[in-house]
């Protein structure tokens, strides 16, 4: 596996982003929240663009869950 995906701390404002993301879901129905997350994924993915980075990110997400 190549290592184009940045896995070291890289967020300018880690606590601030987490907070903003959580706040964005405040009071939303589950279906509305799911849709918001989905739109966010596509926006971020398009910003990244690079297929290798996206593939690595997908793999990293698949292998870092609590249950598997």
């Amino acid at each position: 596996m190549s290592d184009k995906l940045i896995l070291s701390p890289n967020l300018d404002n880690a606590d601030g982003f987490f907070d903003a993301l959580a706040r964005a879901h405040d009071g939303l129905e589950k279906s509305t929240s799911d849709a918001l997350n989905a739109r966010l994924i596509f926006l971020l993915a398009n910003h990244i663009g690079d297929d290798e980075v996206l593939t690595e990110a997908l793999k990293a997400a698949q292998t870092s869950g609590h249950n598997r």
Binding site: R39, I41, F42
Partner: peptide, 22 residues
């Protein structure tokens, strides 16, 4: 989830050109 992702693309495509090829 596949429907949620599909609908997200459709919603985005009305606002942002990047989503249209999806």
């Amino acid at each position: 989830m596949s429907r949620i992702l599909r609908d997200a693309v459709l919603d985005l495509s009305a606002h942002h050109a990047f989503a249209q090829p999806l």
